[in-house]
Amino acid sequence: MQRICVIGGSRYFGKLLVERARAAGHQVTVINRGSSRPPTGVEHLVVDRDDEAALTAALGSRTFDVVVDQVCYTPVQAAIAARAFDGRTRRYVVTSTIEVYDPATAALPPVSAGTPVPEGSVDPAAWLVALDLPWHDEAYLAAHYAEGKRQAEAVFARAGSFAFASVRSAHVLGGGAREFTGRLAHYTGRIARGEEITVHAQALPTVFIHYEELADLLLWAAAADFTGPVNACSDGPLDVHGLTAVIAAQARREPVHRVVAAGQEASPFSFDRHYAMSNARAKELGFSFSRTADWLPGAVAEALATEPSPTV
């Protein structure tokens, strides 16, 4: 039994992580702003993580074996958490993102075309941190999401008072109506209605993970002893045409693709750059991944089931 603190944990795979940690017999505390109550038997601290004094007061004398931070988006939030949990936990795990590798948002080391990106391409210990940028501004944060995540990792990597690990998640799918991003629904809805999907002329592969698998991996990472980043993605990269083919087969509608001009934005998951990660490190550490092809049809079926019935 571990004492696990989850920051966030109110929806999607974070909520599932809390449920599975509790079911496994762990003592779980959830910290959020009160948007939803955790399951029975889970301690709930209602506090704004951005308010350092309030967070420290809410924590009181509590200590934990591990903190799993689901909602850290900026280096300022990371710095507050690093101070608040100094001496309160032996391990800190942050949910990060594949977007830290996006070459459109940072100057990154070159990777051979078609080569899945390894964790070392973005080393948090060496990444520059700028706490004085306008991270509090929602528009700025939205435009600098990937950089906010990179710098948040960097702050934790240098904290030194606890072992730090980050889980860099691939694009998360599954869960039907629970999938709040709406990206899979974008495809299932448009294909079911016969509407066009915008794609790049040479759409390149990316990687995905099912939300249940990501919850399992986060719980595994909480109990492990590795440090540094691990990539989290199912086996089997997929480009936008492969994705629409799976949806089309179940919707029984041919996808309508429209190619956008170079430099123009296309539908989510259509990329004009190779955008796939290597999951070799997590495998070497002992985690077994599923194959995208095994769970994607079920996720598509769930998404199609949430589509409104056509009017007559």
Score class of each variant (00 low, 15 high):
A84Y: 13
R83V: 04
A84C: 04
V93A: 00
R88Q: 09
G87Y: 13
C72A: 13
S96P: 12
F85R: 03
V67D: 02
A78F: 12
Y73Q: 01
T97R: 08
Y92G: 06
R88N: 09
I98M: 08
C72L: 08
A78L: 13
Q77A: 14
V66L: 05
Y92W: 14
C72K: 08
A82K: 05
Q70P: 05
T97Y: 09
V100C: 12
T95D: 00
V76P: 04
V66M: 03
V66E: 02
V66K: 02
E99N: 12
F85D: 09
I80L: 15
I98K: 12
V67Y: 08
Y73I: 00
T74G: 12
Q77E: 14
V76I: 15
V71H: 09
T74H: 07
P75G: 11
I98T: 07
V66Y: 08
I80V: 15
I80D: 14
V94H: 12
C72S: 13
R83S: 07
R88L: 08
E99I: 06
Y73S: 00
S96V: 10
V76E: 12
Q70E: 08
R91N: 07
Y92K: 05
A78E: 13
A84N: 11
R91T: 10
V67S: 03
V76S: 12
I98F: 01
R83C: 04
T89W: 04
P75D: 11
R88W: 08
I98E: 07
V94Y: 11
A79F: 10
G87C: 12
V93C: 00
V71S: 08
A82V: 11
D69F: 01
T97D: 14
E99V: 11
T74Q: 07
V100T: 14
D69K: 00
A82W: 10
I80M: 11
T89I: 13
I98H: 05
V76N: 15
D86K: 14
C72D: 07
V68I: 15
Q70I: 02
R91I: 08
V66Q: 03
R91A: 10
R83P: 03
V76H: 11
R88V: 05
T97G: 06
T97F: 05
G87E: 14
V68N: 03
T97L: 07
V67E: 02
V71W: 05
A81M: 11
V93D: 03
Q77K: 06
V68K: 02
Y92L: 09
Q70Y: 04
E99K: 09
R83W: 13
Q70D: 02
V76F: 10
R88S: 07
Q77Y: 05
A82T: 05
I98N: 09
T97I: 12
P75V: 10
R91F: 07
R83I: 05
P75E: 10
A81K: 03
Q70V: 01
Q70H: 11
A82I: 11
E99R: 10
V67F: 06
V93E: 00
V76M: 09
A81D: 09
D86V: 06
F85L: 06
R90F: 07
V71P: 04
